[in-house]
Design a protein around this nucleic acid. Sequence first.
DNA 1: GATGAATGAGTGTTCATTCAT
DNA 2: AATGAATGAACACTCATTCAT
Lengths: 223, 223, 223, 223
Amino acid sequence: MEGSTPKSRDALRAATTRDPERTRAAILSAATAEITAKGLTGARVDAIAKRAGVNKRMLYHYFGDKQGLYLAVLEDTYSAIRHAEQDLHLTELDPVAGMRKLVLFTWQYFIDHPEFLSLLATENMNRAAYLKKSQSIRPLHRPLTGMIEVLLKRGEAEGLFRHGVDPVELYITIASLGFFYMQNRHTLSVIFGENLSAFERLAARGEHICEVVLAYLQPPEKK
Amino acid sequence: MEGSTPKSRDALRAATTRDPERTRAAILSAATAEITAKGLTGARVDAIAKRAGVNKRMLYHYFGDKQGLYLAVLEDTYSAIRHAEQDLHLTELDPVAGMRKLVLFTWQYFIDHPEFLSLLATENMNRAAYLKKSQSIRPLHRPLTGMIEVLLKRGEAEGLFRHGVDPVELYITIASLGFFYMQNRHTLSVIFGENLSAFERLAARGEHICEVVLAYLQPPEKK
Amino acid sequence: MEGSTPKSRDALRAATTRDPERTRAAILSAATAEITAKGLTGARVDAIAKRAGVNKRMLYHYFGDKQGLYLAVLEDTYSAIRHAEQDLHLTELDPVAGMRKLVLFTWQYFIDHPEFLSLLATENMNRAAYLKKSQSIRPLHRPLTGMIEVLLKRGEAEGLFRHGVDPVELYITIASLGFFYMQNRHTLSVIFGENLSAFERLAARGEHICEVVLAYLQPPEKK
Amino acid sequence: MEGSTPKSRDALRAATTRDPERTRAAILSAATAEITAKGLTGARVDAIAKRAGVNKRMLYHYFGDKQGLYLAVLEDTYSAIRHAEQDLHLTELDPVAGMRKLVLFTWQYFIDHPEFLSLLATENMNRAAYLKKSQSIRPLHRPLTGMIEVLLKRGEAEGLFRHGVDPVELYITIASLGFFYMQNRHTLSVIFGENLSAFERLAARGEHICEVVLAYLQPPEKK
DNA sequence: GATGAATGAGTGTTCATTCAT
DNA sequence: AATGAATGAACACTCATTCAT
């Protein structure tokens, strides 16, 4: 079972050369894979080291202990999605197009990054104990709400969106509709007797999410 | 660290009398608490036994092993929500009222039963491996989709709901909007700098969810 | 693995009727099977009870504890071979025929009763600790040496056997030649790459043992 | 109960230095003692570790698990006797002297190495399940039968031995006569009321075994 | 910077035995 | 006489972490 974890290309190079940067990256990548697959308590330090192709002692050298490594994984993972969002340049688009782009990007991101879903589940089982200790994560999120706020304000002014929508509440709704589906698709597929991971099913869900969000944003007076 | 886990009333009675029914229930209840708090790998068999106030050997007597106990918890937990839904008698209400009742019930259920959220997160990290083994869970879900289907059909006929809504997709959306919020409220509170667990915040979210769902269901021609 | 132990006919009757004699016999028979298959430490009290089709508590009722049960098995097993030997009525035969009959009987007994071999191995790993406690086993063996002594004396007087053969030493030799082969046939088959359990192989070994014993007994002056 | 198991000299050195070779040897030696004293199921991993003076975890580091350790003990023990036999250089002696040397060596080896007897008993209760998995044991035995074959052929040619003696059958007979006696001397001493472990008794048995084997080998025409 | 050996507290599980009915 | 629930000590094995080189 343990034997099947293949060394990544990073891992192979880390084993042969003395490249601290690469060693660190290999550990982080291996840790992300292990922890998101098995949870924090389920992940094994030995398995991470083997997967990274690195001596176990190195984990402690670079990250202090298992918890430090976990925190690094958490920060790294949050950072990735927030930076990807920045690259969307939503505020340069018109409100409806911008909102649609955000919704679809978010949905696609959850499809492409199951490790993000998994990590959040783990961290919330810990009641965000590690996240609270992080100095770097909180500031990452200001641009996100800012961006949504701009879109909402402009849409409101142009009569495209309803009044009084809370940007945080809205973002949570956007995330919910994709996150829950992707995270729980295994149990949902069983209880409903349908394969929710099928490609067409995912596309249909994306369209559904757009409809739900946009229907909600539509101003009532237009009806 | 965990020495303070208090014995429940069930536990105290199970310890003094020879009542298999009660012993089994005490174990199941303690296991649910432990597993939902720490995950399957994080939960400790010793802690479950101590919390239930029974000898550790009894867990194995009644449930075979830790995995068997986990499966029992899973079945028990799923059964509870599905039976509570049946008690709503939704099909006796008019479509909009029925839908609203389902949405609010679901939201309130997630607030009241954090163990349900937690357990689903755990099971999905296992890719539903245990759920797939259960014989009893699948049939539990037929009435749920049936109930929603009836509401949708009637609403559609009466011109209250849009056409072509998929009951499974809709239920997933209803669940998403509450589940994600409650499950991830710890991390969300940190990253957005707001206390999402506050009482008024929960009430507001409930109202928001209703609006989102009903806005989506509204037929486009009415707008 | 545990599921395959079938209840014997004794076991089935013991379960339905209140027949102490039969219950006791069923337990003894099940215990013999378990203990000789897995050794004293390897045998499980639960497995014995299940195999006997009897409540575990009954083992304690009839035999005190696991060790008492083991001692009963030991006495029962020794008693069986010694009584079978008595039934040979060796002293009524002429010396060579009598000796040959003893040798072949012993060999056949080991073939037919692997549990005897197994139990002796177990008891000798305990340095005969239980056997020493038994009151009934020692007296069982006087007829055996007596019988051999008679044969040797008569054979010696008739010039058929060499002088000064010690009956105990001779019996040990007779037993050795069959016992070792049967007890260790599994490892011997592996290390020598031959199937020592094959029917013809067993027959050949029986003839070989006879030859060895009789060659030894032949008086040197005859050569 | 077993608290008095003293640390061997190997064990004491292994505890103080970081010497993998010695640690491994100390574990193997301790395991041999424990397993041969109590059988595979009776042997305790904790007891082995304590006796070896190493941390329990090291057993798993070097040998995988208890079964792997047992297999190593088995291979090590078989290897020892087979190499000791090679050192006899039997084929350089005349047939009768060579055979006598083999017989007496075998007898003395069983006296000196009770662990060999015990281990074979254990392995045969397992129906040689572990031995069958070993890659290294089978080849060890070819020289033994080869050696005996040479002696038999030469003895036959010189008219000293009878025709048609099977080397495997003969070796089993030689081993039987000593093995059974040593392995079962505890029960035999009880049932026959004699101390079969007494020094003079062992010497007498050695002489008896030689007589039996050589009497069998003597050609019939000489009689 | 990097390694493999070493540790002690703990993991799920099993044991022979006893209790209450 | 017979049963199934209940027990506590022990079982093989694993964990994150540290030491010596």
